[in-house]
Nucleic acid binder design. Sequence first.
DNA 1: CTGTAGCATGTGGTCAGACCACACCATCGT
DNA 2: ACGATGGTGTGGTCTGACCACATGCTACAG
Lengths: 266, 266
Amino acid sequence: MSIEHRAWEVVLQSIELDLLSGRLRPGDHLPPERALAAELGVGRSSVREAIRVLEVLGLLRTSAGSGPTSGAIIVALPGGGMSALMRLQVAAQGFPVADVVKTRLVLEASVVTELAEASARAAATMDANAALHPDLSTPALLLGAMDSPALSEAEFLALDAEFHLALATASGNQVVTATMAGLRSAIEGYVRAGATGLASWPDTSTRLRAEHRAIIHAIEAGDPPAARRLVQSHIAGYYAETHLANHLPDNYADDHTDATGHPVGR
Amino acid sequence: MSIEHRAWEVVLQSIELDLLSGRLRPGDHLPPERALAAELGVGRSSVREAIRVLEVLGLLRTSAGSGPTSGAIIVALPGGGMSALMRLQVAAQGFPVADVVKTRLVLEASVVTELAEASARAAATMDANAALHPDLSTPALLLGAMDSPALSEAEFLALDAEFHLALATASGNQVVTATMAGLRSAIEGYVRAGATGLASWPDTSTRLRAEHRAIIHAIEAGDPPAARRLVQSHIAGYYAETHLANHLPDNYADDHTDATGHPVGR
DNA sequence: CTGTAGCATGTGGTCAGACCACACCATCGT
DNA sequence: ACGATGGTGTGGTCTGACCACATGCTACAG
């Protein structure tokens, strides 16, 4: 029946079917490797290869020892897998850096637009219930943390990454959040390398902080076009300044993603 | 030095560094597993686990036997890895189907907008050189193939997937193309299941074909807003019809960017 | 000299078995 | 009652062996 001929693919398919059928759910333990090998009629090494793949893809976590926290446990943390995939694809030249930056621009514009629209909607219904407002507490916290003058470039950029990721998280879209995390980590090396070549890091970091605040403000004000425009110039501006995106088209930072539109509202 | 303690992570990191430094490039052969194991001072099984991960992520292809086509060869085909990751994340409930659909909507809207803008730009410069126009020959071919009345539902949907993927390919963004491929394959099962519950498949497929042609027409006409609107209603409409996105918001396909009054497009 | 059959070689794919490190847990001794 | 200690089961790793397969060389027949 199976198209799969390699033993480890049989194991992978078996686990995927168990996930789809609900026999395995997040939090569950996989059977011990030896038991799984015996059950499927393959060697333990084949089981291990399949488990290794699932671990890298962020589907499970393994730990040795005994007790309830040991063994292979189903988790669904796509961020790590997405990061590994995109980082390696960039390293192997399958993903041009320019495409990574462009995609990030599209997704982040969509994120802040959605957040601003949610804000506007919450305000329009004169809702006293804070639950309808997007939760911007984490981004706000990071905003404050980035104001510390003692931060090194690397520390600031780490907080910056967290800030943008927190926005994606606030939008509530898991796929977008994981993808953004992957995109960011894929070009992390380039971002950091670019920062060292800046004319004045204090000037740049000051500008970045101001832009962050402006983006948050536009979201809270319920102004989607402004939020979108600000986030686009924020990202494109940094990459332009660091010469990261040298061969990007001239109209790269134009506000044509206005036109990308996206599924909004709920 | 290495933070990595597991042997297979050492191997993975070593290969990643070779990629980043340019010692390994697409098309190159990895050393034989046994040689790599000896070189890195680990067991062959650890090397194999790392290679397995890279294979699933789409970074290399392995084949047994002898000769120049055998062994592990660096390729950078992100589609497969992205598909595996997203398919499994959906299976493990890390990616809600609704988020997958939303993300697809965002990306595909961006793709057709970009294509339409490129068309408009090419036309505006009265350029006789066809190179500046986006290459829509593949989507056009698929459009014709989908007209065949003998197609089964599954065959039609396969061509439909190819059509949307061809649009992404035409946009030239590798990251978006790979991501769209992954998103599509993640919900392929749901799409096919939904099709069987339709009131009238002939009616639906006729409508889908017409919508495809309208999208292509809007792109060729250089009308980004129209292309965006059409692709959004196309995708959202199908999911709504198949009850795939039951808990998506009612105004899911609304185009709020127009409602803001902000001038869109260029 | 030519062509072909067949063997040598090197590759990934798989398995079995062994050992280690580790974390829990039951038992035992105080 | 409590703490030390060894048992037990887990993943992590290595070794060595064998298989299947594709290539390419070699020896033999024509």
